[in-house]
Design a protein around this nucleic acid. Structure first.
Lengths: 158, 158
DNA sequence: GTTAAAAATGATACTTTGTATCATATCGCA
DNA sequence: TGCGATATGATACAAAGTATCATTTTTAAC
């Protein structure tokens, strides 16, 4: 599996349920399964990928509408992040962290969609924000996604 | 019109043709018109937006395939930039500059797709590159796109 | 000039991605 | 029990992007 060891999955899901409850959101079975699907991989998944996963892992046939709705909910709770570079989704890698969430920054492999969530100097963000303001823009999300190639895909290409 | 004053359009197109020629690429009439369409606005355009523009401005009906092909060509020549956040395209704002092209960085209004191309401290890019390497990724493009809201859309929303 | 290869564009059809809309089911609670 | 809110299903559609092959246009050699 991906970024998460098996024995941490339950703990993460419990934490996720807690986070939801605090905002009056329920982590329903389907939401939980979909989040699990994302937690089990470090490759960003498209909505239609996730439909496949749900089918294969749980025998459940979800409509696109449902999947997008669930992804919106989970994004709203900061349990998953939407990667706009590829229109794919990845579980937040800090669900179990006690420290407050940093601004999410991602290294995204353009080829296989492997993702690493990194942290970025807040000064850098402040700098971007200043630059935006100087151009009459307001930064609405400091999320940064960088075009990369992961090690595996580099080897494969060479 | 957008980012470009009328009297500079010809000069910019000539410069663009030069740049193409150096790489054995031709700036055909359709490519030129499509580039013009992009030069006339500071809002990123989708491929299908551009089909509309070509229809309205020149009465030419382009197939999606053709538009995507042309956009690839123009991107390859650094005459237009693809914004991956929104899958839209914008003319490079430095076609006429004599100085070498900086790494392109964009402030993108999530609402109306207005775009400003800014420049970013090369140290910052170097920093990203180092971080990528530390995570076994290689930065394939240092292009950064930031989620913003432009002044007009802020006013409209409030 | 003619012609053959290369480059550019057209046309058809299709796949993927995302959304609108209305229906149904489930849950919490009075 | 029954009512309102939340969650999910289902159908249909719209938008975005691609594969494939055909046709036209350019280029350059002869």
């Amino acid at each position: 599996m991906g970024q998460l060891e098996y024995h941490r999955l339950d703990k993460t899901l419990a934490q996720a349920a807690d986070m939801c409850q605090k905002n009056g959101i329920k982590l329903t079975p389907k939401r939980s399964k979909l989040l699990t699907g994302l937690l089990k991989t470090d490759h960003a998944q498209s909505a239609y990928d996730l439909i496949e996963v749900m089918k294969l892992e749980y025998g459940e046939t979800l409509q696109p509408t449902t999947v997008y709705r669930i992804l919106d909910i989970l994004s709203g709770e900061n349990l998953v992040h939407k990667l706009h570079l590829s229109n794919r989704y990845i579980a937040c890698s800090h669900i179990c962290c006690d420290h407050g969430h940093d601004v999410p920054q991602f290294l995204v492999c353009d080829s296989c969609h492997k993702v690493v969530e990194i942290s970025v100097d807040p000064d850098m963000i402040a700098d971007f924000s200043r630059q935006a303001n100087a151009n009459h823009f307001v930064l609405t999300s400091p999320q940064i996604e960088l075009h990369c190639r992961c090690q595996d895909c580099q080897s494969a290409a060479s």
